[in-house]
Amino acid sequence: MIKDFSAQIKKISALSDTTFDFELFVGETAKEAAPGRFVSISCGDQRILRRPISICDASPSEGTIRIIFEIRGEGTKWLSEQKVGGILKVLGPVGNGFKLGGLCDLPALFVAGGIGTPPIYYAAKNTPGKNDLVAGFRNKSAVILEEDMLHIANAVMVCTDDGSYGIHGLVTTEVEKLLLKQQYGAIFACGPRAMLKATAELAEQYHIPCQVSLEERMGCSVGACLVCACAIKGKDGMEYKHVCKDGPVFDAKDVQF
């Protein structure tokens, strides 16, 4: 059940000039965290809308969750300026996460782009087996979670758009190479829409079940205001579902990109 609660900031680390890693004490709520779910955080009294941020990890025993976010505007800038010990107004956990259970014995392929990497890391960490992970970033300074990913995946491929680190090129080029070489039982993706679209097309081409986590400008975070609409193929044609309540994770073949 979604709760509205206060969370204390336990740890802050700056992963780059614009990306921040927070550990929040959320008590019992940590038990309800799951890969793909997110929290909506109030970013100061001057802003009406909460900012939805994916959960990157959780420790139910310590009552903590980890979130990683990028400064995108005034709200996330405000959030980045908070200090350890500070209290945040948090709504969550929100949404339906990745369905990681019931996978076949084949390894899974995790595909991440930029700030879509934290939930993919969390999903990969919670999926047993020899799974591979491809993560793409704008450039070297935008690369996050590489060390963490190396601990939980069989092979980790880091790509950058400008070639300043790792493999020069798009994640989807690497995804296709992997699909030609090896069989996967499932694909899980989170990142920019173009990356999700290309990944979904590859998954369809290679007949692999694929789940994607979508993003959209959000209002209430609980499914009441209907603003975070995403086009989903329905029985009677296209319909708008909502990222906060029906998602953020959808079966890729249902999404109308």
């Binding site: 009406i48 809308l49 709200g75 959000m218 209002g219 205001c225 603003v227 975070c228 609409a229 708008y240």
Partner: peptide, 19 residues
């Protein structure tokens, strides 16, 4: 079915919506 997204924008002490 409503309007295509984006359906919301933040404004100083307010929001714009077009659901």
């Amino acid at each position: 079915i409503g309007n295509p997204p984006p359906r919301i924008a933040e404004t100083p002490m307010g929001i714009l919506n077009s659901v």
